[in-house]
Amino acid sequence: MQTLSRQTQQDIILQCNDVSVYYDRQCAVKGINLEILRHEIVGLIGPSGCGKSSLLRCFNRLNDLVKGTKVTGWISLNGQNIYDPSVNPVELRKQVGMVFQRPNPFPKSIYDNIAVGLKVNGYRGDKDELVEYSLRQVGLWEEVKNRLKKNALTLSGGQQQRLCIARAIALQPDIILMDEPCSALDPISTARIEELIRELQKDYTLIVVTHNLKQASLISDRVAFFDFQGEQEEAGHLIEYDRSEIIFQRPSYRATQDYVTGRRMPLR
């Protein structure tokens, strides 16, 4: 596993050091070392069950909510270990936003979907302005500005997912995590979200888990490939992490090569 030695220290926003995740006693992902640079889009790819999502959920400590989860190693965000006892995961999640596999808007109005996050995080500025700004950033403003009080569940799936992205960026996080954000969407909505992800790169760092290799090559600056090592192994490992074009065109490992060229079935 290579480190990105040519980058200077302050460019690294997130750093994993020997991170392993266990559910009860079963290991989901093992010994991950990974450095993520500010304003980059990092794609996490690999076969199902190899621990990409488990790792992603460490970055905002959402794993804490699952009983019996244990995380070893350390992860630093802007130089601070997020698993330090002094860090409250609730505060961490303002800095690290997340978008889920299925759009999960709150069963509230479109406006409240964004405003409630501002409220719990103690936003003192003009809420209306920030709601509008966030909706504009995801290109939803023109579509919903006349029905902000309508229930968010009346939106289409693609609109719901963009609302969920708006909800995340309204909190001005440093990083946005996306767990297969397009897997429940039609191709047109998917294209809009992919475009949006690239736009968001100006302001945020994005980590995107995806099973869609074309999507990964299209949006990512860097790609991390995860796989099981050996037949018996249950836990996933990080096989290779490099610039997107290197992973897809001349990877160093046979396993990566087989996976990205589709010689191995990328399950689902």
């Binding site: 909510l65 999640r93 936003g97 999960n104 709150f106 409630v116 996050g117 995340a168």
Partner: peptide, 20 residues
């Protein structure tokens, strides 16, 4: 999924209950 969404925007357990 709604609870996870709440947690992801920085809600405490109590806020999750109260608002969602």
């Amino acid at each position: 999924s709604i609870r996870q969404g709440g947690a992801a925007v920085g809600m405490t357990k109590g806020q999750m209950l109260r608002y969602l």
